[in-house]
Structure formats: C-alpha cells, structure tokens
Amino acid sequence: MTDINAYETAPEAQFGDYVALLKPRVMSLVVFTAFVGLFVAPIDVHPFIAFCSVLFIALGGGASGALNMWYDRDIDAVMNRTQSRPIPSGRVEGGEALGLGLVLSVLSVMMLGLVANWFAAGFLAFTIFFYAVVYTVWLKRWTPQNIVIGGAAGAFPPMIGWACATGGITLESLLMFALVFFWTPPHFWALALFMKEDYHKAGVPMLTVTHGRPVTRRHIFAYTLVLAPFALWLGLTSIGGPLYMAVAVVLNAAFIHGGWRILRRSEEQAVADGYAVERQVFKLSLYYLFLHFLALLVQSWIGGW
C-alpha cells in the first residue's frame, strides 16, 4: 500500500504558530498598561471581572495583531526580522490568520461588553479598527509618521482598562494615553537608528530612510521634550502622588538627557561605537514606560496625594 501525502513538504502549523499570530510580546505591554488603567481607577472592580477584562482587552490586541500579520504578509516575507513569522514561513496560510483575527476581534469585543460595559467594548472595537485598518492598511505604507499614529493604538489599552472600571473617559485616562502615545516615537526611532532594516526594500516609509538620520535624531529629542510635561501632569492628577512624581522626574530627566545625547551625535560617531548610545536610550525607553506604570500601580496601592 502506498501512502500519498500531499502535505509532506509544507511544515505543519503547531499551536504555538497561532499564538505567535497574536504577537505575544506586544500583548504583554497591552496586558500591563490595561491592568494598571483598571487598577488605578477610582471604582473598585471584582478581581475576577478585572482579570477577564484584561484578558479580553489582550485578546482584542492579539486579534488586531493577527489582522496586521495577514495584511503585511508581503512585507514580512521581504524583511529579515519578520521572515520567520508563521505566514511568511509557510506554516499558516494568510486566510487562516484573517479568519482568526476577525473571529477573535468579534469574540473579544462581545465578551468585554458582557464582562465590563459596552463603552469599554466599543472602545476596544475602535482600537482594533484603528490598528488593523487606520494604521496597517492606510498609514503604515504611506507616511513616515506611521509610528506616531500607530502609537495611538498602543496607547488606548490603559484608557480601555480605565473605561472598564468607570465606564468613561477622564483627564487621568487621557494623560495615560498621552504618556504611551508620545513615548512611542522616540522608542521606535531609537530602535530604527541601530536596527538597519530593509524597510525601503519592503516599501515602508521610515523616517530614517525618507528624511535621513539627522532628522530622526532631532525628532527623538523633540518627542522626549513633548513627553515630559504630560508625564509630570499625570502626577498632579487624582492618581498621582509623591512616589509617582519622584519616579517621573528622574525618568524624564534621564530620557531627555538620552534624547539630547542622540541629537548631538553624528552618524560617524554612532557607527564608530556600534550605536552604543542609541541602544542605551532604547533600553532606557523600555524601563521608562514600565516604571511609570509600575509607579502608578504602587502609588494607587499606598494612596496618593
């Protein structure tokens, strides 16, 4: 008897490949900021409701990640960093990612509406639409400001978390949005300076390619300056406090200093030491966001002003 197996050459998709479609690393940021937004809100939420709310916000974020991977499968196949993703590597078909993304989008929005409230669910639906359509489809391949606008999608989760508890939007949740929103451009452009990716080959306009590296350095510094007042203002609201304020002052001073150092360097200096400063600032930016939200969490726990 002869076994005929048409699937011999195609690698079989494992469960982990479908998890990878949901961009777990991006999801970790969503989980953390959404949890903080929910926890610091003035209205107490039952722990299990809070857990489920954060879970479905994360699932919504994952769904938009799958939709992004479906739409960007042509770019992902070209760039080295993304060639091993499930779709370009041939383990998962594009249509499967689209289906998974759409089903999980609907499921996460419906469940968040049932778990928390329909305002938060609508907000999550808008976030998925914003990331998958406004960012991925419309803006990513069209403008070098794509990072700035795409940053809004990553900045919505703490607002959704806040909305899960309170059912609305307030100054505090808007400032948490501003914190992530203005943090995103310096974070990604610092990465773009030392990760020499072939975005131009893939047809994605990146600021480093379209306007050059000196302009990118100026943009990074400018955004660290814009970011600082919003971070400090958040400390003056009802969710701020002495601890948050102390953390914010130190981190913003360090971040502005980092932006200044990036600004003052020429490309030759950067190449000479292997982009050491850019790497340091990128690493600092990771701590910057994590510690700000951690400070909000601890401040809410020990009591604010």
């Binding site: 079989e12 998709a13 494992q14 469960f15 982990g16 479908y18």
Partner: peptide, 10 residues
C-alpha cells in the same frame, strides 16, 4: 500525530 499540539491546545 502531526496536529496533536493544535488539537490539545485548542
């Protein structure tokens, strides 16, 4: 056998 991880995971 090949799809065990998918089935168990789901």
């Amino acid at each position: 056998g090949r799809r065990r991880s998918r089935n168990v995971g789901l």
